[in-house]
């Protein structure tokens, strides 16, 4: 990605990835918000979170070390992880450019 994107744009992309991972018909039934947590609110299991992170890496990878960031998380951080955490992380990486 060459252009800096807004929080809202990132959110839309992440939401789309969630739909791709868990199935769009399930995603439509969920109230997915920036503050939604992957484990508690979206009930995504570990492999689904890994699959989701692959997609984020593919999309934003050139400019951010998303996998590295996620790999560094311990179990409590991973359980608490929300969509917003990822948006903030991507924004921070972009502002460093």
């Amino acid at each position: 990605m060459d252009t800096v994107v807004t929080n809202q744009e990132i959110f839309v992309v992440l939401k789309q990835f969630i739909g791709e991972v868990i199935g769009q018909e399930f995603a439509d039934e969920l109230d997915i918000r920036p503050e939604s947590s992957f484990t508690k609110d979206l009930e995504m299991d570990s492999i689904e979170i890994v699959a989701f992170s692959e997609k984020v890496k593919k999309r934003f990878g050139a400019e951010i070390n998303f996998t590295g960031w996620l790999s560094g998380m311990d179990i409590d951080q991973l359980i608490a992880l929300t969509i917003n955490d990822i948006i903030i992380f991507i924004q921070e990486c972009q502002s460093l450019k």
Partner: peptide, 12 residues
């Protein structure tokens, strides 16, 4: 295998 997928969890 999880070591590879979620290294942070493995480290924990």
């Amino acid at each position: 295998k999880m070591m590879e997928d979620l290294p942070g969890v493995h480290e924990w």
